[in-house]
Design a binder for these strands. Structure first.
Ligand SMILES: [Mn+2]
Ligand SMILES: [Mn+2]
Ligand SMILES: [Zn+2]
Ligand SMILES: [Zn+2]
Lengths: 140, 140
DNA sequence: AAAGTAGTTTAGAATTGATCTAATCTACTT
DNA sequence: AAGTAGATTAGATCAATTCTAAACTACTTT
C-alpha cells in the first residue's frame, strides 16, 4: 500500500517533468524523494541503488541527476572541488557544510540575516546566491 | 630596481612562511602577489609561468599553491566542481562568480548585509562563511 | 669551502569524478 | 504487432589533481 502510493508519487513526479517513467528513474526518484531532504553525490546514490538491488549504471545515475536538476526537481550544490552534491530541497535556503565528513545540512532561509545583495552587473542576471557555512570539528 | 624590490618582497613572504626561497617559489610568488588581487587556477598559473620563461612543472605549481594556502598567503575558493581557484585576497570578503566565463570577482565584505549567522554546532567551529553570487549573461 | 642532510622539484604514472560513444533495449504511438 | 524516439549501459575517454620515486638544491655542519 505504502509501496503503491510511493510508486504513484514517483510516477507523477516523472510525468510532470516530462520524463519517461523507466524502472531506473522510478527507483532513483523514490530513493531521492521519499523521506526527508537529502544532499547526495552521484556515487553515493549509485551505491545506495545497487545496495537495494536496483540495476542501474553509474552513467544512468548521472543522466537522471542532471535531468532532475534541469527540470527543477533537484538543485546542484558546489562545496567541494571535485565532487557535486545534489539537493532535494529546491526552496531557497542556505547550507552548513561539515568539512571533515563531507556532509551538507540545510539552514532555513530566515536563519541568516542576508540583505543588500549587490545588483548583478549590467548584462547579467543573478542565477543564485549561495551561502555556505563551513564548519570543522573543533581541535582538542 | 623594481625587480630587486619585488625580489626582496617575495623573499620576505617565503621566509616568513617558513618556506625555502627556491627559484620556482619565488617566481610563482611574484606572479601571484605583484599587482592586484587575483583568482587563479593551478593550470592558469602554470601557463602564465611558462609563458614568462619560468621553468616550473605543474606538480610544483600545485605544491606551491597548497603550501601558500596552508601558510595563509592564499585561500582556496570552491565555485566550480572540478576546478579550484586560489585567491590572493585572504581578507574576509565575498565573491561574484561569472558562470559563463568561469571568472571570480571580489565583493567587499560590507557590500552585503550579513548578520545573525547561526552558531556552529557543538564540537565544531566555523571555518569560513562563504557567500557567492552566481551571475550569468542575461538571455536575449 | 666541502660534505652532509633535509627539503624541493619533476616527469610520468595513477587516481578520481565525470562525460562520451555507440550498441542494445524499452516505453509509447500507431 | 510494428515502428520509433527515447533511455540505458559497458567501456572508453577526459580533465583536474595527486602520487611516486629519482634527481636536485638550499641550508647546516664541519
Ligand atoms: Mn576535496
Ligand atoms: Mn563545472
Ligand atoms: Zn539543501
Ligand atoms: Zn576573492
Amino acid at each position: 500500500m505504502t509501496g503503491s502510493r510511493n510508486f504513484a508519487a514517483a510516477l507523477a513526479r516523472l510525468k510532470s517533468a516530462g520524463l519517461r517513467p523507466t524502472k531506473q528513474r522510478l527507483a532513483l526518484s523514490k530513493l531521492l524523494f521519499e523521506g526527508g531532504n537529502r544532499h547526495i553525490t552521484a556515487e553515493q546514490l549509485h551505491v545506495e541503488a545497487r545496495h537495494q538491488g536496483v540495476g542501474v549504471s553509474l552513467a544512468t545515475v548521472y543522466n537522471a541527476l542532471h535531468q532532475f536538476t534541469e527540470t527543477g526537481m533537484l538543485r546542484e550544490v558546489v562545496v567541494d572541488a571535485g565532487r557535486s552534491y545534489f539537493d532535494t530541497n529546491v526552496d531557497e535556503h542556505h547550507h552548513l557544510f561539515y568539512v571533515d565528513e563531507g556532509r551538507l545540512e540545510d539552514l532555513p532561509r530566515d536563519s541568516v540575516g542576508l540583505s543588500d545583495i549587490p545588483a548583478a552587473p549590467i548584462g547579467c542576471r543573478v542565477e543564485r546566491v549561495e551561502l555556505i557555512i563551513r564548519v570543522r570539528r573543533a581541535a582538542g
